[in-house]
Design a protein around this nucleic acid. Sequence first.
DNA 1: AAGACGTGGCT
DNA 2: TAGCCAAGTCT
Length: 374
Amino acid sequence: MIEWSKSQIHAFRKTLLDWYDVHGRQLPWRRDHDPYHVWVSEIMLQQTQVNTVIPYYERFMAQFPTVQDLANAPEAKLMKAWEGLGYYSRARNLQRAARQIENEHNGQWPQTAKGLQELAGIGPYTAGAIASIAFNEPVPAVDGNAFRVFARLLEIDLDIVKPQTRLVFERVIGRIMSPERPGDFNQAVMDLGASYMTAKNPDSAHSPVKAFNQAYLDGVEERYPVKSKKPKPVKVAYYGLVIQQDKRFLMQKRPSAGLLANFWTFPLIAEDDVLALSETPELVTDEERLTLLERLVQQELGLAVHVVPMGGKPVKHTFTHRQWLISLLSATVKPDADLSFFPGKWLTSDELEKTALPKVQEKLFTRIYQLGKP
DNA sequence: AAGACGTGGCT
DNA sequence: TAGCCAAGTCT
């Protein structure tokens, strides 16, 4: 890692802010410095690209114009507004934080990064972003852009995946950032990271700060930032039960914690759970699997079903840490089936449209319509 | 500390 | 295609 002199730091600030003043992006959440606007945009932008966020942000603000509107919003309406954005705990934490502000802070925002971090879903990055942009506090906002930009500028070779590395970057950036325009400085770093100093195919030759970019000057830009590899998603095979009567589907409500918490999906049965019913899983034939599956559904869900494969390759859906492979089965239950042990209910297409559904469930619907079953 | 937690774009 | 990446936080 290299270090800059005071004069270099001053020159860098001026170069970066002069560039930002002319070329900074005009984005919907940059129309003002309202903390609510900054906050909602920052939460949406976590692990999500700007172009994806823009339409969600506009719709969200139309539906929930103020913190109070958000605090009082029905859960279903909130989730519908977030549908498709992913990382759904962000939406639930958003509302929790809105209620914290209303109930614990008399509707007033904490105005420091330290205070903001007490709110649900606000970590060190988001706290720094809101504090600097909305309240002009001179604190760094270290996101993936800041890691990448400063790792290259200063040839910092610490692994950015390790939590302690953030502290080093915060210290370094805290010394470099403009005390007069902290919000603009942090946003300029993000714009730089999203334009010239991108992760793939950077264009540092034309970057306004190329003279400060040590990794570029040394021809080793590709090495930065140092980032250890994450494990591959684990494959998990499921049977998906398509159970319909009239124009309704029998849907299951997922547990209140974990992946896709509280969302409605077709009943999903792990293939491993089915095979576990056999003493010789490796010898089970396809036909026997279905018999075992029917037994398991009876035991675990209290449903007497008869299943028939719907054909086609399993529907594949990849999350950050799991890859689901879902084989669809058309299932029938008795018309007077006892649903008292079943964690779900019949949903009409009308109700389904008003309900937030995860992408994987939309994929399953797409598949069954392609198969022409309904 | 390391894994959980979604989705879409790009190569 | 499979894999990586995109304005992280929580446990």
